[in-house]
């Protein structure tokens, strides 16, 4: 079969006039295709009806960030900028200041994450020496403006 347009299923070399003609008319290929699509048609679908049914995240899912707090409700972050340094998307922006607590020097005054830049890689969590930041399993982020997408320290603490 020189004409490439006419090649049907390459698996079986057709024998006999009828078989060859049917092959030329794409009949076997069309039928096998239709069989396949019928299989798909009746197969159960993986889609979840989202707002009603929510996917249960697996352990270790990386969603929105949270700034953790210790037992006394003080944020654990010491504004070391390690997360900002590690972040490949450069979406963390910390402003440091003196800490209000005597047991440490430094604390963030502001801590912003641009959730639109973030790629949810978890490097920040990995880099933090104080176990102060973590990625929660919240994967829905709703906001009505770009500004809202830049989470500030209060938002991150309350996550």
């Amino acid at each position: 079969m020189a004409n490439d347009d006419r090649v049907g299923s390459r698996d079986v070399e057709p024998k006999g006039f009828l078989a060859k003609t049917l092959m030329k008319l794409y009949v076997p290929s069309v039928l096998s295709g239709m069989k396949k699509t019928m299989e798909y048609m009746i197969r159960p679908k993986a889609t979840l009806q989202y707002p009603e049914v929510k996917r249960v995240t697996r352990k270790g899912y990386r969603g929105e960030h949270r700034l953790k707090q210790d037992e006394q409700g003080r944020m654990k972050c010491v504004a070391c900028f390690m997360c900002q340094t590690a972040c490949p998307a450069e979406c963390i922006e910390i402003t440091a200041g003196p800490s209000p607590w005597p047991d440490r020097d430094k604390a963030p005054v502001q801590f912003r994450i641009d959730m639109m830049k973030c790629i949810y890689c978890g490097m920040c969590e990995e880099a933090c020496p104080c176990d102060a930041i973590e990625l929660t399993e919240t994967y829905t982020q709703v906001s009505t403006s770009r500004e809202e997408k830049i989470y500030d320290i209060n938002r991150l603490l309350s996550n």
Partner: peptide, 22 residues
């Protein structure tokens, strides 16, 4: 409909070949 979502679109020369020659 079933056929529509199964088969890819023919090329124009194939279409004409089929019509006139087959």
């Amino acid at each position: 409909v079933w056929i529509r979502w199964t088969l890819p679109r023919f090329k124009y020369n194939q279409l004409m070949d089929l019509g006139w020659k087959a």
